[in-house]
Structure formats: structure tokens, C-alpha cells
């Protein structure tokens, strides 16, 4: 399989959120604004790329029996790095993402790629796969955050789009918890329809 395929797989065909329903907790929790989504996406991509790199590098050294604990320690190391770096250089973003930074450790996308891909592939494809999956995750979060921030706050990435009047009486539920669940239902429904169309067309 070529590197280009490794790269693009995570973005569309096997998008971790929309196609595999992984990483739901941070996805639903931090998509209240596009800025948070980008921050979370960057943090997760960083961890994903480096953990894929190390797991792939050590794939012949780590005994099969203790591989999952080893992966978790590798992932936790990079999560701690991201946590400390963000706290130092982006304190505002760090406090708005809050508990979801340490929780990147238990993000199933990262452990899933370590176990499902980096574990059996060479270093370079693993890094590319990490970048692709990370971008796919980020893209999914930005799409969701776009809906939620515009509906719930009338803005996009902080820019006022819908004017003062809307911002005084926004569709507040979109940035509250129920909005995340309901919007996600419609987005997944949309992907279901697309899937069906595609299959129908292929027949």
C-alpha cells in the first residue's frame, strides 16, 4: 500500500469519528468552539504521530504479552508532554480543554492505531498513518464545532458571523450537552444516507 493511501485513509475512507465511531468523548466534549476543536486536534495528532512512531520502532522488541501496557505507557508519556507544553505556551486553551488533555491517554483512536497499524508496519508508513488519522479526527471535530459554534454563539473561530442580534439570543442548546448528541445523530444519519447512495449506485 502506498504512502498516499496510508495518508488519505484516515481522512475520508476510515475517518476515526464518522466511520469508526472512535474517540467520542473528546469529540463531543470539546467541539463547543472551533478554536477548542483545533487545539484538541493538534494535541491528539501530536500524540498519535509520536506514539505510532515509537510503537512501530519498537514493534520487534516489545513482547506480545505486555504490548498493551507498553503502548499505554508510551502514549501516556506523550500526553504528559503535550499537557506540560500546552500549560506553558497556551494556558488559555489548556484551561478550556481541561480534563480532556490527560484523557487523550484513553482515546481509543490512539491505542487503536498502535495496535491495529503501527504494530505491524514500518516506521514511515506508521508516521504517515498517524498524521492522516490525526487530520481526520481534527477535520471531524472542526466540522462539528462549526455547526455548534455558529448555531450556539453566532460566530466561527471567534469571528462574529451572524451579528449582535443573533448573539443576544442564540440557539444556546447547540453548545450545551444535548446539542452535541443531537447534531451528531444528524451527521451520522447523513453519512448513512451517503453510504447507501454509493452502494445503490454501484449495483
Amino acid at each position: 500500500m502506498s504512502l498516499a493511501q496510508d495518508f488519505s485513509r484516515g481522512i475520508m475512507k476510515e475517518n476515526p469519528v464518522f466511520k469508526q465511531a472512535l474517540g467520542m468523548c473528546p469529540f463531543l466534549a470539546v467541539t463547543t468552539s472551533v478554536e477548542n476543536a483545533l487545539g484538541m486536534g493538534a494535541a491528539a495528532t501530536f500524540v498519535l504521530v509520536f506514539s505510532n512512531f515509537l510503537v512501530s520502532l519498537f514493534r520487534k522488541v516489545i513482547p506480545a504479552k505486555v504490548r498493551i501496557p507498553s503502548y499505554i505507557v508510551i502514549i501516556a508519556t506523550f500526553v504528559t508532554l503535550v499537557d506540560l507544553l500546552m500549560n506553558a505556551y497556551l494556558p488559555a486553551l489548556h484551561s478550556s480543554l481541561g480534563i480532556f488533555i490527560p484523557l487523550i491517554v484513553v482515546n481509543c483512536i490512539i491505542l487503536g492505531r498502535a495496535e491495529g497499524f503501527a504494530n505491524k508496519n514500518k516506521v514511515l508508513p506508521s508516521i504517515v498513518d498517524g498524521i492522516g488519522m490525526g487530520l481526520g479526527f481534527t477535520l471531524a471535530m472542526v466540522i462539528m464545532a462549526t455547526f455548534r459554534e455558529i448555531l450556539g454563539n453566532g460566530s466561527w473561530l471567534g469571528f462574529n458571523l451572524l451579528g449582535e442580534a443573533y448573539q443576544n439570543q442564540p440557539l444556546l442548546i447547540a453548545i450545551l450537552a444535548p446539542g452535541a448528541f443531537i447534531l451528531m445523530a444528524f451527521i451520522l444519519g447523513f453519512f448513512n444516507i451517503m453510504e447507501k447512495r454509493k452502494r445503490g449506485g454501484a449495483k
Partner: peptide, 19 residues
């Protein structure tokens, strides 16, 4: 509806419970 079967429906229910 066909499109909402499975996971989307679960999210809708979760949304209603969350409200």
C-alpha cells in the same frame, strides 16, 4: 427512518435524555 437506524438513533435518545 432508514438513515437514523443504529448509532444515530442512539445519539438522538442520548440527546433527549441529556435535555
Amino acid at each position: 427512518p432508514e438513515a437514523l437506524k443504529g448509532l444515530p438513533l442512539a445519539f438522538l435518545i442520548a440527546g433527549a435524555m441529556s435535555i
